[in-house]
């Protein structure tokens, strides 16, 4: 073994440049491929929402507004996704004729169960997000041209699905369990650390502003 190694060392200089570089190059290219293309695919799992909720129908045909479902409670908390009980106010029995609605009514309303909604922007437990603080009343003081819809998707907060007919796919990081579109801290800081914002709330980039 020792001799073989010595031999290789001696003849090393005579190896063709290509031969010397080939394995290295192969490794390089392969790792680049894995790193840029394969691993992001492997890292995330794609899932569908349990219910094929149609925002558009609710807005256009039922004439509902966003705050009919997504509203503030008196204690300052935010309702987020309506509960089955709230949905059942209209959907105790199927309203329309779609099979999907019937399925929803049978599967959830009748059994009194909550669908296992996948929240695109679900933040982990250590994050406290105040919807009340991020209202048009606050942000709109300066951003006078913003609509509520724009506000909700600023900095990538929420995917703009207010007019969608079917919920987009949800992809989840297999290691962290986070949604692929979960905002990372830097995205929050896009606004929070902005020097222009300091005048309005000097401490709005403090740790405890968002962490619990």
């Amino acid at each position: 073994m020792e001799e073989k190694r010595a031999h290789n060392a001696d003849t090393g200089g005579q190896c063709s440049v290509l031969g010397g570089f080939l394995p290295f190059g192969l490794g390089l290219v392969l790792s680049l491929l894995v790193g840029w293309w394969l691993s992001p695919k492997l890292l995330f799992s794609e899932q569908s929402q349990p219910v094929a909720f149609n925002h558009k129908i609710h807005k256009e045909e039922a004439g509902m507004t966003c705050s009919d479902c997504h509203y503030f409670r008196e204690d300052g908390s935010y309702s987020g996704i309506p509960t089955t009980k709230e949905c059942a106010d209209c959907h105790e029995f199927p309203v329309g004729s779609s099979a999907k609605e019937r399925e929803y009514v049978n599967k959830y309303v009748k059994k009194g169960q909550e669908p296992d909604w996948k929240v695109y922007q679900m933040q982990p437990d250590n994050v406290f997000f105040s919807h009340a603080a991020h209202s048009l009343e606050n942000c709109g003081k300066c951003h006078t041209d913003w609509t509520e819809k724009e506000l909700c998707s600023t900095s990538g907060c929420h995917p703009d699905i207010g007019d969608s007919e079917a919920p987009p796919k949800y992809s989840e990081n297999r290691i962290t369990g986070y949604s692929a579109s979960t905002m990372k801290m830097w995205a929050c800081e896009y606004c929070h650390a902005m020097p222009d914002h300091r005048a309005y709330n000097a401490n709005n980039n403090a740790c405890f502003t968002c962490h619990k």
Partner: peptide, 18 residues
């Protein structure tokens, strides 16, 4: 101990909504 900091967050939100 965080002085129940979350209670402050909630109190602020309650004030905001009101």
């Amino acid at each position: 101990c965080t002085f129940c900091h979350h209670r402050w967050m909630k109190a602020k939100d309650k004030a905001r909504v009101a």
